[in-house]
Design a protein around this nucleic acid. Structure first.
Lengths: 198, 198
DNA sequence: GTCAATTTTGACTAAACGGTCAAAATGTGA
DNA sequence: TCACATTTTGACCGTTTAGTCAAAATTGAC
């Protein structure tokens, strides 16, 4: 019985994610979501308080998934540069494999910046995400390093990943991207390494 | 007489730009714009066809301003690296001096990606912008270089600038940014230079 | 100061939207 | 099969919004 409710909740989230990757969050209506999920409008309000609630839920889960990908790397990561390269690669994979979540995170970040008065609930996942990056690289850094520098590194990594891949997404097709993105990633990694004074 | 109309149009654009930098484009209402401009609602429809029209107009002008900044550099730019550094610095200055337009361009880019079916009118300025970057760096490149690689460079530059500065904008205050962003920019420039095989 | 052309206005309409809730549908245990 | 708990539904309500338009206000020429 509760199984049914869970399935329905899942369907709602899936539908919402789909719609949010096709239209700007603020332009999406509740009925578009429930229609896509092939459910009645009231059902959404059985599972979520309001539209914002479902957005926050989805952003939170998307960050979870992204972090999961960031954390999964094999033993070949030995140096700082290896870790940075892994992080960028993981971001790239995320933008391809989880395109909808990538676009949602991108949009959400913008909303946080704009309507920050009300939505610090939405900001929390992004802080969590930046913190995760910092923690992943910190083992490869001198413990005496300026924390601000690490924060900047995380911003650079996140910013580059989101900004670059988003530009690339529209301006190039998949094959073009796959083919030869590696050298650029490598170059960026090198520059970050230099930035950290190694 | 037409002077008055021009002034009014200018006031509308200024107000709209302000509002768009505080709220997501799709969440902004026409009345919010006209109220901010201290004008009647109908006045907006005297000067623009609809809400989309004013957005497209503003994006177009913002790209003009950004391109203007990208083009203005002194004679000290001799190498590719100098040009890349100038471009990043110009983006950064634009994000600070023209914060509202920067945020608008950021939002607009996202809209293009999402609702691309209808809004290729909105996409045109961004293509113009990428093309401008390509043209600015091309004098410093071998004429035999793969055009795709140049396009990728432009995406990297644009993506990094928008993505990084936008993350930095929320996560750090101005002093922190100003103080020590230079080495990261320099490192990134170096990596791009390496990417282009020099 | 008058008049006509231009610009601005805000009340108005029709449509759309978020959110509610009593009723219907569905699943469960006896 | 029936009674009961849970879940789903979509018509409904109040509010908000884009867009209109006849009237008012402003301007400049004479």
């Amino acid at each position: 019985m509760q199984k049914r409710a869970k399935r329905t909740r899942k369907r709602l989230k899936k539908a919402a994610l789909d719609v949010f990757s096709e239209k700007a969050i603020d332009a999406v209506t509740v009925e578009e979501i429930t229609e896509k999920a092939d459910l009645g409008k009231g059902t959404l309000y059985q599972h979520f308080n309001d539209k914002e609630d479902i957005v926050v839920t989805l952003v939170d889960e998307a960050v979870d998934h992204l972090i999961e990908q960031l954390r999964s790397y094999d033993g070949s990561v030995e140096k700082l540069e290896d870790m940075l390269e892994h992080l960028l690669l993981a971001h790239y994979r995320f933008s391809v494999d989880c395109r909808e979540e990538f676009l949602l995170l991108f949009q959400g970040k913008l909303l946080v910046r704009l309507q920050s008065e009300t939505l610090d609930e939405l900001n929390e996942p992004y802080l969590r995400y930046l913190k995760e990056i910092e923690e992943l690289v910190s083992p490869y850094l001198s413990p005496k390093i300026d924390p601000l520098k690490v924060r900047r590194l995380a911003c650079a990594c996140a910013g580059f990943a989101f900004g670059f891949f988003s530009f690339v997404m529209t301006e190039m097709n998949k094959n073009e991207i796959e083919s030869n993105i590696k050298p650029l990633r490598r170059a960026f990694v090198m520059s970050l390494g230099t930035f950290l004074g190694r």
